[in-house]
Simulated assay, not measured.
Amino acid sequence: MSPATSASPLDALDHRPELAPIFPEIERAHAVLADCLRREGRIYICGNGGSAADSEHWAGELLKGFYSKRPVRSHEGRRLPADLRGIQGGLPAIPLTGFLSLRTAVANDIAAELEYAQLVWALGRPGDVLIAISTSGNAQNVALAAKAARLKDMTVLGLTGAHGGKLRRLADPCLRVPADRTHLIQELHLSIYHALCLSLEATFFPQD
């Protein structure tokens, strides 16, 4: 998958001047994700509670059109039968918050804190990216997933609050937003991942 152009996530963050101190890290995050997708890697996302909802939301914006219709590439489109012509181009993003049977089996048979680590170990490949979301940075199942990802030679992209917690040492880059209260952290996370989705869409599905 080769992009025809490039876009900056900062184009969509004019309304969030409080994020200015981490703008360079947000641009790094875009570069990491774009490089993974260029090499046909996959993006995995995990988190708990509101961050689990963010994982599903983020993946949803990547898997189909966000602001553009994302036409299927011409050589692929020619193979589609008429009743599949509405399919859009997607970017491979897998929310680890799914897999209900597997996660409950891990919790029952092994240990609940290994639910995401098990999925990373089974699915992850060198060059893939794990997006680890934790407002405190200390969620144990998310931190263990990050450790597993590093052992698999994956890149770990962290989103946390100001302190960073365990993910501060496990993720590179680690986007530590300037907030300490959970709902404010989550609001800033939403702005960041929407901006990253827009920039990736513009990069891989440029509009005429």
Score class of each variant (00 low, 15 high):
residue 66 F to D: 05
residue 65 G to K: 06
residue 18 E to P: 00
residue 146 A to Y: 10
residue 115 E to A: 07
residue 84 L to T: 09
residue 179 A to W: 13
residue 87 I to P: 01
residue 166 K to L: 01
residue 10 L to I: 15
residue 95 P to K: 10
residue 108 N to E: 02
residue 40 E to D: 15
residue 38 R to P: 05
residue 60 G to W: 00
residue 76 E to A: 04
residue 199 S to F: 00
residue 51 S to T: 11
residue 188 L to C: 13
residue 195 A to C: 09
residue 55 S to E: 07
residue 169 R to G: 05
residue 59 A to L: 02
residue 51 S to V: 06
residue 111 A to L: 05
residue 14 D to M: 03
residue 31 A to K: 13
residue 177 V to H: 04
residue 202 A to Y: 08
residue 185 I to S: 12
residue 186 Q to H: 09
residue 41 G to R: 02
residue 83 D to N: 14
residue 51 S to Y: 11
residue 131 I to M: 03
residue 193 Y to K: 11
residue 135 T to W: 02
residue 17 P to H: 13
residue 149 A to F: 15
residue 208 D to H: 14
residue 194 H to Q: 15
residue 134 S to R: 11
residue 125 R to L: 00
residue 112 A to M: 04
residue 190 L to Y: 04
residue 25 E to G: 01
residue 154 M to Y: 14
residue 81 P to C: 04
residue 149 A to L: 12
residue 113 E to Q: 06
residue 203 T to S: 15
residue 158 G to R: 02
residue 157 L to M: 15
residue 23 F to S: 03
residue 7 A to T: 03
residue 36 C to L: 14
residue 190 L to H: 03
residue 119 L to G: 09
residue 6 S to L: 04
residue 133 I to W: 09
residue 165 G to P: 10
residue 139 A to F: 07
residue 65 G to Y: 03
residue 63 L to P: 01
residue 140 Q to T: 15
residue 175 L to T: 08
residue 4 A to H: 01
residue 204 F to V: 07
residue 118 Q to P: 07
residue 115 E to D: 03
residue 9 P to H: 08
residue 161 G to T: 15
residue 101 S to L: 03
residue 37 L to G: 12
residue 56 E to W: 02
residue 117 A to S: 04
residue 22 I to H: 05
residue 132 A to P: 03
residue 116 Y to E: 03
residue 124 G to C: 06
residue 180 D to K: 08
residue 158 G to P: 07
residue 50 G to R: 15
residue 67 Y to P: 10
residue 190 L to C: 00
residue 140 Q to N: 10
residue 169 R to W: 01
residue 189 H to K: 11
residue 87 I to D: 10
residue 93 A to C: 15
residue 102 L to R: 07
residue 83 D to R: 11
residue 87 I to V: 15
residue 187 E to R: 13
residue 166 K to H: 05
residue 110 I to Y: 08
residue 117 A to I: 08
residue 105 A to S: 04
residue 58 W to L: 02
